[in-house]
């Protein structure tokens, strides 16, 4: 019986050849260049926050940080980057950080300062939210790289949760989702299923079924999200296990 015939069960995503980062990695061939560029742009659009936070945390002022971030992405999206990425063969997460480190070193050395508003729009940054997030972050003695990676995880999670939320809105089940999402991490500390069943006006068994489905969907979306940042031969599970060591 094919998996897609079972209600609520979504087939595992095929992760080869279509994730953004694997497309970028194959960009050495010229015919993929445009596609690869677009893929890289997509990735940058999604994961600019850890970069911005990294820069701000070094003590850079708000406006300068904005400039630097934009300049960094502008440089990144130049075509030469793709060739470098091919040789590097890492994950997008590590690639981005090492590229940033190189960029910042060069900037300090050259002492060039870009004028504000001088460049073309590269990536649209939601600075208000970014600053809010930054303000909420706990101060820790950890290395900036570690914090960067944790930001990375947070961005990824947020994207997945937003997608789940958006899906639930489309299905007209936004209220239900907002109640049930607490079960994504388990049942401890959350209302008992009996109580939730009362709250939602469902049977307890129905709530369990919904939770099961929600978790499966979360898993799928999350793995899809991670897969986008990995190349062909990289293991999703290994990446997740690594990220878990950050906590």
């Amino acid at each position: 019986m094919p998996d897609d015939a079972i209600p609520g069960r979504i087939p595992e995503v095929q992760q080869f050849r279509t994730t953004h980062w694997s497309v970028v990695l194959r960009a050495s061939r010229s015919e993929n260049a445009d596609e690869a560029h677009r893929a890289l742009e997509e990735l940058c659009r999604a994961y600019w926050y850890p970069i911005y936070a990294f820069i701000r945390r070094r003590g850079t002022g708000l406006h300068d940080a904005q400039d630097l971030t934009q300049a960094f992405f502008e440089k990144l999206l130049e075509k030469q980057t793709l060739a470098v990425a091919d040789r590097q063969r890492g994950r997008f997460r590590t690639f981005l950080l090492s590229a940033l480190n190189n960029f910042l070193i060069n900037e300090a050395r050259d002492a060039k300062r870009l004028k504000r508003g001088g460049g073309a729009e590269v990536i649209s940054l939601d600075l208000e939210t970014a600053e809010q997030q930054l303000a909420l972050e706990p101060v820790s003695g950890e290395s900036p790289e570690r914090v960067y990676e944790r930001n990375w995880v947070e961005v990824m999670m947020r994207r997945v949760l937003d997608r789940l939320q958006a899906d639930s809105v489309t299905e007209g089940q936004a209220e239900r989702f907002s109640q049930l999402r607490v079960y994504l991490v388990g049942e401890q500390g959350a209302p008992s299923f009996t109580e939730m069943a009362n709250r939602l006006g469902l049977t307890e068994a129905a709530v369990k079924g919904l939770v099961r489905r929600l978790r499966a969907r979360y898993r799928l979306l999350f793995r899809e999200e991670i897969a986008q940042t990995l190349g062909d031969d990289q293991d999703i599970d290994a990446e997740i296990k690594y990220l878990m060591t950050l906590y």
Binding site: R9, P138, E154, L161, R181, Y218, R219, M244
Partner: peptide
């Protein structure tokens, strides 16, 4: 510890470990 930056107020570590399990 559950920081204020936890996405959706949920523990990132738990979310990660959940993603690791197969169905």
């Amino acid at each position: 510890a559950l920081p204020a930056t936890a996405p959706g107020g949920l523990c990132s570590a738990c979310l990660l470990s959940r993603a690791l399990l197969s169905a």
